[in-house]
């Protein structure tokens, strides 16, 4: 009754990773958007024509998350079979 399926331990860990990534994503998005964006418009600088707060929060933030998610999935996500008692078919 108490023994846990090893695949569940993998799944639980990956769910926590997902939560962590979402939190990081939120902090990045929020900090740049409202940290830089709350200055008066005259002080904005423009990167590739876009306001700096938007560039860092949404464009760089998006790219950072893509890289981060890819790396995390490649390094830490484990391939497990979903069916009981049988090797995963290719």
């Amino acid at each position: 009754m108490k023994e846990t399926d090893w695949r569940f331990r993998v799944a639980h860990r990956e769910a926590w990773i997902g939560l962590g990534l979402a939190l990081f994503n939120f902090v990045w998005w929020f900090a740049f958007a409202y940290g830089l964006g709350s200055r008066p418009v005259e002080e904005y600088t423009y990167i590739f024509g876009l306001p700096d707060w938007f560039f860092y929060s949404c464009i760089v933030g998006f790219l950072v998350m893509v890289v981060l998610v890819t790396v995390v999935v490649k390094l830490f996500f484990i391939d497990v079979p979903f069916d009981e008692e049988q090797e995963e078919s290719r």
């Binding site: 695949r7 569940f8 799944a11 990956e14 769910a15 997902g18 497990v80 979903f82």
Partner: peptide, 8 residues
């Protein structure tokens, strides 16, 4: 979040 446990 749903992930592997949901699939299993």
């Amino acid at each position: 979040i749903l992930g592997k446990k949901y699939a299993i």
